[in-house]
Write a protein that binds this DNA or RNA. Structure first.
Length: 302
DNA sequence: AGGTTGACCTGGACGC
DNA sequence: TGCGTCCAGGTCAACC
């Protein structure tokens, strides 16, 4: 379901509601697919930690975890003991300062139908709930995902999780142009490639290509510098506008507060197959590009 | 290596 | 009402 604007909306909503809370208990469901890290590791990493911040990297929701004061000491000495016993190489005896362990992060990818809800523990647990995190306020953070394309994991990377690709909202026009140099695939497939740009999905690929006047099947490498600059501008404008409106809700998107986004009212081509183009009246077409349903106006996009 | 395709899941919409 | 078919905003692994 969610692309960058939807994930951003959820992350902001959840951050406002749970920042600073302590995680008291973690329950994980039986289905294995949603867990990318071992269940025991997720439980051990989350339990007792304070939620420092909830934010977004690409389409991934990132929960920064802090050790609480009392446990921080216990953990540090634990870590130290284990390290010196089991793996002396990683911490040389004569090192003056132990390397500060990277802060743990909880990663949540919503897949297609995933939802992250903050609610009172008295609220009935809906079907397809795969994780329940109890907070010290008594409320719960719940991960619900019917289709089970979503993924939960924990990481402790040096410098924090950064994802693979570049961030579309902050990349410069020059770097954006350079990303597609030599790419023989279609511009649509290139926009969806998360190792180039992260966060762009099917809706915003189609909508930004329409606003830039570029046909989705054009080969990325053959677009002019000017066309790519137009696409850069259109993509950022579309993403910002969608974030402002709380994202799109084509099927079952609901943000952390249970409020639907409104950007779908602004879709100009996405899911408008057979309807007249809002600019020129030409019938909107649907084709398949890179295995994805792709919507465009044959007159406005060249 | 870059590019393409199909598999992974469930549920909703649509046609008969 | 019920059944079959198709479609879905995302990733991966496996192939070319």
């Amino acid at each position: 379901m969610p692309e960058l604007p939807e994930v951003e909306t959820v992350a902001r909503g959840v951050d406002a509601r749970v920042r600073g809370e302590r995680i008291e208990h973690v329950w994980l469901g039986e289905k294995p697919e949603p867990l990318k890290s071992p269940a025991a590791l997720i439980e051990a990493t989350l339990t007792g930690k304070r939620i420092a911040r909830v934010h977004r990297v690409g389409k991934t929701i990132v929960v920064d975890l802090d050790a609480t004061d009392s446990e921080h000491h216990a953990e540090t000495s634990n870590h130290h003991t284990k390290t010196t016993q089991k793996d002396p190489k990683s911490l040389p005896k004569n090192a003056k300062k132990p390397v500060k362990p990277a802060c743990a992060q909880w990663l949540i990818h919503l897949g297609m139908t995933g939802r992250l809800l903050v609610c009172d523990s008295a609220v009935p647990v809906p079907p397809h709930t795969h994780a329940i995190v109890r907070l010290n306020s008594g409320r719960e953070l719940r991960f619900v995902d019917a289709r089970r394309f979503g993924r939960l994991s924990v990481v402790a990377e040096e410098g924090g999780f950064t994802g693979g690709g570049r961030e579309p909202l902050t990349i410069s026009p020059e770097d954006f142009v350079a990303l597609f140099r030599g790419r023989r695939t279609s511009i649509k497939a290139a926009l969806l490639n998360q190792t180039l740009l992260h966060g762009v999905g099917n809706i915003y690929a189609d909508e930004s290509l329409f606003r830039a006047g570029i046909r989705p099947r054009r080969q990325a490498a053959r677009l002019s510098r000017d066309e790519l600059r137009r696409l850069h501008f259109a993509l950022q404008a579309v993403l910002r506008s969608a974030i402002k409106q709380g994202g799109s809700s084509v099927s079952d998107y609901v943000d952390s507060d249970g409020v639907r986004g409104f950007f779908q009212l602004e879709h100009r081509v996405y899911m408008r197959t057979g309807q007249p183009c809002l600019v020129c009246g030409t019938t909107i077409r649907r084709v398949v590009v890179g295995g994805r349903g792709t919507h465009y106006c044959p007159t406005c996009q060249r």
